[in-house]
Design a protein around this nucleic acid. Structure first.
Lengths: 115, 115
DNA sequence: TTAATACATTCGACTATGCGAATATTGACA
DNA sequence: TGTCAATATTCGCATAGTCGAATGTATTAA
């Protein structure tokens, strides 16, 4: 049972563990958006957006409203915003490390790009 | 730059997006532990533990203390505990959904197990 | 120095995830 | 009805993550 709970928690984090989904959640935290609006803002293909939205739906992060032809997504619980706010605190408190990590990621990306 | 920030955030969530690492963080939140102690508590192989600890180290979630032959791990920032506490609130507020998700995961696991 | 212990890293196999292209579904409207 | 527009799903491929076994590296003790 404990293990199930951990699986649940990990699932939550995992769903937020992709930059595109972070972007989606951030945009939605400002208000509801249709899929095509999200595609524009985030800058991704429609199919890809649907896939990421499916992940967020499966974890009950978002809910949808159908209006004619299109579907509007919005965040389901302001608590999620608070979690992200706590995360922001964490980011600020560890800004120097954040920068270090970003540097390292850039380095790794460059190495990967010159094979 | 915004994108880098999102990558950073996603990296944080991603690092917590695995049940084994959740377990590790939960045990460490009670106090520091050596690797072998963690292996016992979590119930995983030593190599696997090292791999997961490497992920947590790369994200600066944990810090280490060497004592003789062994290495003790502890959480690095109580803020992380607060993030997890917020998450706990979220879990409690969505308990019914959590159960639903667990049911679905069990179903999927059973289907996968009878090919 | 050698042997043993504790931890880290690498390796190979497997699984999962992400992407765009193609395809399906649904609703609006002529 | 047929067609278009918006969204979802499926498919094939490539990449990344996970696991245990094997190997590497320190550190302690004999």
């Amino acid at each position: 049972m404990l293990d199930s709970m951990r699986q649940f928690k990990a699932g939550i984090f995992h769903a937020l563990g992709h930059p595109t989904r972070i972007a989606i959640v951030e945009f939605l935290s400002l208000g509801e958006l249709s899929v095509s609006q999200l595609c524009d803002k985030v800058g991704i293909e429609q199919a890809n957006a649907s896939q990421h939205l499916a992940v967020l739906r499966n974890k009950y992060f978002v809910e949808t409203r159908k209006e004619g032809n299109q579907i509007f997504y919005q965040l389901r619980d302001p608590l999620l915003g608070e979690v992200l706010a706590k995360m922001r605190e964490y980011f600020l408190a560890h800004m120097s490390e954040a920068m270090k990590m970003l540097q390292e990621e850039k380095k790794a990306a460059k190495q990967g790009a010159v094979p």
